[in-house]
């Protein structure tokens, strides 16, 4: 039986030493720890796949969070609340980018330039590129769940308040998203899904 590739992760706890008061000192995010800001940027990057866009989205989200500070009722949940604002901002920015084809192409170029930072060889890893292309073609909700669950490593209980859905709904979206990713990736990279030689796997109606 296949080993689960991802287990419920506890990586996504709120950053060490951080609390809602981190939003108070200023709106530029300087009040957040370096770790927290880096994590928000990474989260935005996994939605937008462009470093500059991700940093802009985080900056906008922090400004928005500061303006809506009174809407945070439970300070203990400030990290999830901030993540929700970042995800919403990424969604808006993604739609704006789709409306301007030129910006989209520039973003693609920037991604390749950024690839040098991600990958020391200066080339974008084929697997990551395929994942990015497939994720960008997913429906919005599936994309959000897939990114939060499988790239950010959040549990469904953590995803649910961020997306304002039930955990069971998040599970359904995750499964649908994985199956959709399978279809998209098998179209672009059929060799990855070819059964190994000598395999006895044949479709049946068991």
């Amino acid at each position: 039986m296949n080993r689960p590739a991802h287990r419920a992760s506890d990586r996504q706890r709120s950053p060490t030493g951080g609390d809602a008061s981190a939003l108070e000192p200023d709106t530029s995010g300087a009040g957040l720890t370096r770790e927290a800001r880096g994590r928000l940027c990474r989260l935005a990057f996994r939605f937008l796949w462009n470093r500059d866009d991700a940093e802009d989205a985080v900056q906008d989200a922090l400004l928005s969070a500061h303006a809506r500070r009174d809407q945070l009722k439970d300070d203990a949940k400030w990290w999830g609340w901030l993540c929700r604002i970042v995800v919403q901002r990424c969604h808006l920015q993604g739609r704006q980018r789709q409306r301007t084809p030129r910006a989209q192409s520039e973003a693609t170029l920037k991604w390749h330039a950024d690839g040098a930072a991600v990958d020391a060889s200066g080339t974008l890893c084929e697997t990551t590129g395929a994942v990015r292309d497939a994720i960008l073609r997913l429906p919005q909700r599936q994309r959000e769940v897939i990114v939060l669950r499988f790239l950010e490593g959040m549990s469904y209980d953590e995803i649910a308040p961020i997306l304002e859905i039930a955990p069971s709904t998040a599970r359904v979206h995750a499964r649908a998203g994985l199956e959709r990713l399978h279809v998209l990736m098998s179209e672009s990279h059929p060799t990855w899904f070819r059964a190994p030689a000598g395999s006895m796997e044949t479709p049946d109606d068991a």
Binding site: A5, R42, V118, C125, T127, T128, I146, F150, L151, W192
Partner: peptide
């Protein structure tokens, strides 16, 4: 594949 993408984007230089 998702795991690979996660590992690669983990080192995003911010």
């Amino acid at each position: 594949a998702l795991n690979t993408a996660r590992r690669e984007t983990e080192t995003l230089p911010t």
